[in-house]
Amino acid sequence: MLKKIKANYYKCMALPAFLLFFCFFIYPLCLGIGMSFTNWDGVSAEKTFVGLWNFREFFRDSRAIHTMLTTIKYGLLEPICINVVGLGLALFLDSKLKMTNLMRTFVYLPSVISALVMGYVWQLMLRPDGGAVRQVMEFLGFGAHFKAWLAYPDSALWIILLVNVWQFSGPAMVIYLAGLQSVPQELYEVATIDGAGYLQKLKCVTFPMLKPAFQINVITNIIGALSVHDSVVALTDGGPGYATETISVYIYRMSAGARAGYATAVAIILLLITMLPTIFIYRAMQKER
């Protein structure tokens, strides 16, 4: 018996990994789905089945609806901005100029630092009393336009967006650069012979070849943006008021406030919000191929 296991172990070497993954990912996921139908507080033994009550509660609470809309708005804007900036930087730094390698290093550098730490750094930069951004704006003559943006509900989310784009365009850029380098040079040569200009080459040669890079960038950024947490905590902590509270911050607060059942229901809603666009984009791109 033991011999048989030993002889066939090589076929089942995926099992240990799967076991760990099952215990700490799939099992809690299933447990969470069950929990979301109860009114459990997270501590007591009492747990009553309440059906879809938690979900109804979510859609009745104006604060919850607001966190959902904030998350969706952010989840829509962040991937767009990061991909536009990342692609732009990749095209710019793929040129034959000197020092492009050094520039790539600079662009990538912030993304290896914790988003929480970087959030505090930007809070320091944006301080109204003697913050560096204000100094620079005054130097350039825009001093009058400075506001304590993080303190206003209308602008705080945009600052979070900007900081994230600043910090995380690097990885997107690197993926696009890898895509650019995989385009065969002959294609460009043929296009040049056919008389194509720069923009035409971009449209007819570069972009179609970048599709895999585009796909991976969009999907990973959507998933990341919809569960944004660290930089929100550091920059605004959901404030002013609840203006920049995203779903993941909300989940954290609800579970800390002894509403485990409700918090898991919110998590399930976040899961659905994440899955829908990812599956949709994945499908659309598979079809095009």
Binding site: F24, F25, P28, L29, L31, G32, M35, G42, I219, I223, G224, L226, S227, H229, S248, I251, Y252, S255, A260, A263, T264, A267, I268, L270, L271, T274, M275, T278, I279
Partner: peptide, 11 residues
């Protein structure tokens, strides 16, 4: 495709 934060409460 599943963001890790979803599991925190049951975990």
């Amino acid at each position: 495709m599943v963001p890790g934060i979803i599991n925190t409460v049951p975990l």
